[in-house]
């Protein structure tokens, strides 16, 4: 008799516990922060609002080599956090089986403010950007269909996708949206420069840095516009044509000869660590970059009009300019554990 009663109580109790654990999960909303004085982002968050669960799923995917055909390469293989999510020491990154690309891995940050992606603007929306490296034969050499199939065979992934999207069947759309949730949150706005602008502690410029900022605003800012340090345009910056790769840049996408040799103006944030520089990674030092603009420009037909007037800087001025560029380093971003390999998946 007592046993039966005990059983009954246990039954009721377990029912209650199960009911409780079945309660639907509320996704944790994330508010996208637009730093003070910055423009509104170009990307709209209304289609699929940011959530903590979405971010974590995207983060897991970003670091998972399952996206590549042979499981050897993840997004992070070429986009290394400590260098501003680019590939340090590699002018051209290598994909699976050591296949080498033709362009320098772009640094990833503040992507929601971009309109077009890749050096030639071939990608028109951040949500579909990941398709390019996944399917490129010299990068991950995979198909989206097959990645989706692999993810659907993983119970963990199916449950994570169900949690985020309310659908336990992984689709191409949901995969891309999840990666987007992660990459649009890789935002850098806490460099010494930012603190200087916001007049915060740690933002006091040295004389060299201050002078460098003035030089920068005088000569560089029409393309590398503050606060994002890019105008999001495509420009021919007068690099001599590389005869081995013959990269025509933006013209490949628009087929318009006026776009020949134009490449996207990259952000300069975290430039101290994102070497090498230029679309083909031809320069390894910032001094080489500055010297290009003061004495290396090839004046071809569609050279950016912003470079029409030759730039003359003394050696001291060059040093000050570089000193200023170093203030764009954001260690809080480069070392933020929230963006790093997801070890603590609890």
């Amino acid at each position: 008799m007592r046993n039966r009663r005990l059983l009954f109580v246990a039954f009721i109790l377990s029912c209650l516990i199960t009911l409780f654990s079945f309660a639907p999960i509320e996704l944790k909303k994330i508010n996208f922060i637009v730093p003070k004085g910055w423009p509104q982002p170009a990307y709209s968050f209304t289609k699929f609002p940011l959530t903590e669960e979405g971010f974590q799923l995207g983060r897991k995917l970003f670091y998972d080599p399952v996206l590549s055909r042979d499981g050897s390469v993840s997004c992070a293989s070429c986009h290394n956090q400590s260098t501003g999510f680019t590939h340090v020491d590699h002018a051209h990154s290598h994909g699976i089986e050591g296949r080498t690309g033709t362009r320098n891995t772009p640094a990833l940050m503040n992507l929601a403010w971009n309109k077009l992606y890749m050096w030639d603007g071939a990608v028109n929306n951040i949500e579909v950007q990941a398709l390019a490296p996944i399917t490129n034969p010299i990068e991950m050499d995979e198909t989206l269909e097959h990645v989706v199939k692999k993810l659907n065979s993983s119970r963990i992934y199916r449950h994570m996708f169900d949690d985020v999207f309310g659908d336990s069947v992984v689709t191409g759309q949901h995969l891309l949206l999840a990666i987007t949730q992660f990459v649009v949150q890789l935002n850098s706005y806490n460099s010494k420069y930012d603190k200087h602008i916001r007049k915060e502690a740690g933002g006091k410029f040295t004389n060299e840095e201050e002078h460098g900022l003035q030089l920068f605003r005088q000569h560089c800012t029409s393309c590398h516009t503050e606060p994002l340090f890019t105008n999001n345009q495509f420009e021919n910056n007068g690099l001599p044509i590389d005869n081995t790769i013959h990269d025509i840049g933006r013209m490949k996408v628009t087929q318009n000869p006026a776009d020949s040799l134009k490449f996207k103006v990259p952000t300069l944030r975290n430039i101290q660590y994102s070497a090498p520089y230029m679309h083909d990674g031809r320069f390894t030092r910032l001094a080489q970059v500055v010297n290009h603009y003061t004495g290396g420009i090839v004046r071809s037909g569609n050279l950016s009009e912003k470079l029409a007037k030759p730039l003359v800087l003394t050696e001291d001025e060059k040093k000050d300019l570089i000193a200023f560029l170093m203030t764009l380093t954001d260690r809080e971003f480069l070392l933020n554990l929230r963006y790093s390999f997801p070890k603590e998946t609890k």
């Binding site: 929306n125 579909v128 398709l131 399917t135 198909t143 689709t171 191409g172 759309q173």
Partner: peptide
């Protein structure tokens, strides 16, 4: 029907 896995989406030049 618009899912990019259906073989009707260009990755190299989106659209």
């Amino acid at each position: 029907d618009l899912d990019p896995t259906l073989g009707m989406y260009w990755a190299w030049n989106t659209g």
